[in-house]
Design a protein around this nucleic acid. Structure first.
Lengths: 222, 222
DNA sequence: CGGGTTATTGAGGGGCGTCAACAACCGTGG
DNA sequence: CCACGGTTGTTGACGCCCCTCAATAACCCG
């Protein structure tokens, strides 16, 4: 597997010296849909960067129900943690076939400590992710299910890099999983998706999705 | 106003040298209920620590509706930010009479940079807060309104340091504000509070609150 | 005591959770 | 190529939860 290091979000501003060092110490791995890359509660052994594909970040939510808090796409970093004591806060599972780059903890920390540039980049990324996540979940608290489905669809479009040009895309993400992004049932999600289809916002069939108007979806999501 | 520095969460592990330094550079201020301490979007001018009282942290949520994301009690730090560019992410307003300690940005940063101890403490506090907030808001996504009211009550009990011993406490927090903690209407909140009262979980009247069983409330909140 | 704010309560209706039956789709093996 | 069971998606029925509105009641302040 050929990792495109420069595509990794955290490394896009790094100098070649560090890219070279990192390059020599990485491992690459592939995961099929439904395979789990990281288990919630596991010891943190290193850092993963998604090289290609889509993964979901799942936590145990209210009364143990699964809750998908993010979709991860190419370039996103996972498995990091500023302190050494904590454990993986979420399960990461492939949705579409995923290839990742992996660095052992020791190597990654060597980079962190040797380059202020990388350290700042990583910290900024962390903070941005946390802010995005809490902004989103805050907003969800006040939204109707219909609004939340629209919101989830925009997240999906972003993760899959789908434009609102009506082009059909294959996605393995199920109704059940969309429901787990917004805390509702798959039946409810299905009904609302059909509404959106009837309103001409999108085309959706099993494993296939196309968008016609992000503007209207955004208006619904608020 | 006499600030009890050692009560501040972020400083509880600091050495006396820094406590002294900080002590000489602080200002103290008082706020009445409904007075705003920090405005969302304002420039970050320094750091505040709640010395006494209760404040609410409010953001503009979905379609501009107010959303109370946290209650702040004695010892909590606000107004900080790791980078200098960002602005206040939330409005802080007193609910009960509040007294705060304030340090100008320059002084606070001097401390941050001179003491690894304080820096780590501040970073750890930040991370913990962020984790608590996102955990909570994640859980809210999957909860019914009844469950969310129970959850909010437990937060209120924590902020006001109320035990479930049936003792009455005066609280200025309104039904409207409780509703804004969980994204519902004040009418709905009122009805559910009356349910809880009928079930013997608590006693609630305008501006007065007592708890009888956290265990049962926690069972409802999940 | 009076006027403004806050809390309670009811009625009505729509959103949405739940269940269940059915349909469509999948990969596998005959 | 078809058969077939398992998974996933769709749809309807039903009922409860909860949103909204509005009227009334309780409370607070000066």
């Amino acid at each position: 597997m050929n990792c495109k290091l420069k595509d990794c979000t955290v490394l896009k501003n790094s100098t070649n010296v560090f890219l070279d060092y990192i390059d020599r110490h990485k491992y690459c791995m592939d995961y099929s849909p439904n395979q789990t890359i990281i288990f919630e509660g596991a010891k943190i052994d290193g850092v993963y960067v998604i090289n290609d594909g889509i993964a979901k970040m799942v936590v145990k939510g209210h009364r143990g129900r699964p809750l998908i808090i993010r979709l991860l796409k190419k370039g996103e970093i996972i498995g990091h943690s500023a302190d050494n004591k904590s454990r993986q806060p979420a399960t990461i599972t492939a949705v579409e076939p995923v290839s990742v780059c992996f660095w052992e903890k020791a190597d990654f920390e060597k980079c962190i400590h040797s380059s202020k540039e990388i350290r700042n980049e990583v910290m900024a990324t962390l903070k941005q992710e946390v802010k995005n996540m809490s902004d989103r979940s805050m907003r969800l608290v006040q939204m109707s299910v219909r609004e939340k489905v629209a919101d989830a669809l925009l997240m999906i479009a972003d993760a899959y890099q789908i434009k609102d040009d009506g082009l059909l895309h294959r996605i393995a993400l199920s109704r059940q999983e969309i429901s787990e992004m917004i805390g509702t049932s798959k039946a409810q999600t299905s009904k609302i998706l059909q509404e959106f289809k009837a309103e001409g916002l999108l085309d959706i069939r099993p494993k296939t999705l196309a968008f016609f108007s992000f503007a209207k979806l955004r208006a619904i999501a608020g």
